[in-house]
Design a protein around this nucleic acid. Structure first.
Lengths: 145, 145
DNA sequence: AGCACTTGGTCGATGTCGTCGGTCATGGCA
DNA sequence: TGCCATGACCGACGACATCGACCAAGTGCT
């Protein structure tokens, strides 16, 4: 299904998704048309979901990053989910099992902004906020084999 | 510093980082050499930290995704951090303020694997695990302006 | 066993794209 | 005012992606 060569290609693209087909051909030992065909199939099958870019939020003034655990008040689950989606400063959010219904990542420019945003949520939910001090593991791929 | 055109470029690359310079030129209204120069500067300044790829972990058998809060036992902070980094199934980890020292994302193939991995950690830390049921907000950019 | 079909690859021609040098307009600033 | 730095454009050339034709290996059917 996904063989060694596909994994080499995925790994190479993970490192730099703007690599040319020719460069990928060199890395994988195939010709560039073959690489193009493999990428097409990986996309088609949904293994490769997209090509994207990593940016530094600090460059846009987002000095603070927080992980927020969110527990909606009774009957407010839908409303809270909608609110989170509507606040663009929430850059990711998972709905999880356990007492906390949502765990979300929040980027803000200041403590004041953090306070303001969470106050908005607090009419419909309890929140628990942890400020990110450091990121010991940057986003990476789980092992493939 | 970063003007409107840079933001258009970043947004376009966020959607598809394999777009050609020519395509980016069309989107931004510049010529392709100008786009190349802007990208070069954005990289140089660290705004654009890299071009990467989104893959579907399910395609590699990772059926379960969990958010794990980790509180090292007294004196075990360094050791726990090292352990997390060494376990490739942890695909991201933040060191945060509050009772929980680390919040990490874990991809596993089964409940058994989840149990095994956390048992390894539990000799040095208390953990609190929430299984991801759904992802209401996929990774996205905070507002830029 | 032999044949046809499918799958996944190479090769080479062709057109598109990126890059580089040269040039020009604009906006501080001495 | 005149100079320099910045950031853009243009055009030519070399690099790259794409497409069709072809080939080899594995599979299943008669």
């Amino acid at each position: 299904m996904t063989d060694d060569i596909d994994q080499v290609l995925i790994k190479a693209l993970m490192e730099d998704s703007r690599r040319s087909l020719k460069a990928l051909a060199g890395i994988s030992g195939l010709s560039s048309p073959s690489v193009a065909e493999r990428l097409r199939r990986l996309e088609e099958r949904g293994v490769l979901k997209g090509y994207t870019v990593e940016i530094d939020p600090k460059c846009f003034g987002y000095q603070l990053q927080a992980i927020v655990r969110i527990r909606p008040l009774p009957g407010q689950l839908q409303e809270v989910e909608r609110q989170i989606q509507a606040i663009p400063e929430f850059t990711e959010c998972d709905k999880v099992t356990g007492d906390d219904c949502f765990i979300a990542r929040l980027h803000v420019r200041s403590m004041e902004q953090l306070d303001t945003l969470l106050d908005g949520l607090n009419t419909h939910a309890e929140t628990n906020t942890a400020i990110v001090k450091k990121t010991p593991v940057k986003r990476r791929l789980p092992p493939m084999e």
